[in-house]
């Protein structure tokens, strides 16, 4: 097997009732790349994200992560082997503070510490301190340190998206799935986001799979782009070739008469 591939999507199909959300979708995300998944609304992008993270099961096909099939793993196990994600419709722990959200994101790495802390054992003090220090570092990294004690639900959308990314970083992933990270962000926030995403790749060596509608952002940061339309892959390539691809232009703008 090619060790340069982090995740391989193989012939994934999924239908809801009569509607085929995904039809024989196959592509690979290369290690260390920013891979974008684009396509018009309803193309099946979020469904595919859910299948990769284990929240939905595919009707057929295989997901291969680091050379191992992961189809049967429940979502919590997938996080354990290194897949983290963010959500299109923000799924933060609203009634917890920003810091606590990131702390919970470290659950897997400190599972025994978590359980011991429930028994209020003294020996966990150090672990808890560790978790807090690391969480604060991550908040620093995404630029949310000044918000650490606020409830997550009180943050503006832009910062909530950053917090979701921070929480995903906390799990120390190999692959991070970002579902529309720029939705609801203004121009300045989007610019900062693109720097953050590039840093995740370059400094933290995280491979990224991103679903996004903001073409400027996508064209600016992606190494490879896969285009989905009506549940099928219609094109794949680097940003330049995608922009010129007639099938992609048709999918987005419609057929010329």
């Amino acid at each position: 097997m090619d060790s340069q591939i982090t995740i391989k999507i193989k012939n994934i199909s999924k239908s809801f009732g009569g509607l085929k959300a995904l039809e024989n979708v196959s592509f690979s995300v290369k290690t260390g790349q920013i891979h974008a998944l684009i396509g018009p609304n309803g193309a099946g992008k979020t469904t595919l994200m859910n299948i990769i993270s284990g929240l939905e099961t595919a009707d057929s096909g295989e997901i291969i992560f680091n050379d191992k099939p992961i189809n049967k793993l429940p979502p919590e196990k997938r996080t354990k082997i290194g897949i983290a994600r963010t959500f299109q419709n923000l799924e933060l722990f609203g009634e917890m503070t920003v810091l606590e959200n990131v702390m919970v994101g470290m659950y897997l790495k400190y599972e025994t510490g978590f359980i011991k802390s429930g028994l209020m054992l003294n020996s966990v003090r150090k672990v808890q301190k560790d978790i807090i220090t690391k969480s604060l570092n991550i908040l620093d990294y995404v630029g949310l340190n000044h918000r650490k004690n606020e409830y997550a639900k009180n943050l503006p959308v832009g910062e909530q998206r950053l917090l979701e990314i921070a929480r995903a970083i906390a799990a120390d992933p190999i692959l991070m799935l970002l579902d529309e990270p720029a939705a609801g962000l203004n121009i300045r926030e989007t610019k900062n986001l693109s720097i953050l995403i590039k840093n995740l790749k370059e400094e933290k060596q995280i491979t990224l799979l991103i679903v996004e509608h903001d073409m400027e952002l996508i064209m600016g940061i992606s190494d490879t782009i896969t285009v989905l339309n009506f549940g099928k892959v219609i094109a794949e390539g680097d940003p330049l070739s995608i922009q010129k691809n007639p099938d992609v232009i048709t999918a987005y703008l419609g057929e010329e008469d």
């Binding site: 354990k80 994600r85 919970v104």
Partner: peptide, 24 residues
């Protein structure tokens, strides 16, 4: 406590909690 926070996380957002690796 961390365990209490994990439980609270489950009650606030079960989907996200599972993705944090918490065994719901």
């Amino acid at each position: 406590t961390m365990l209490g926070r994990a439980m609270k996380a489950c009650s606030l957002d079960i989907k996200a909690a599972r993705l944090m690796g918490i065994n719901v």
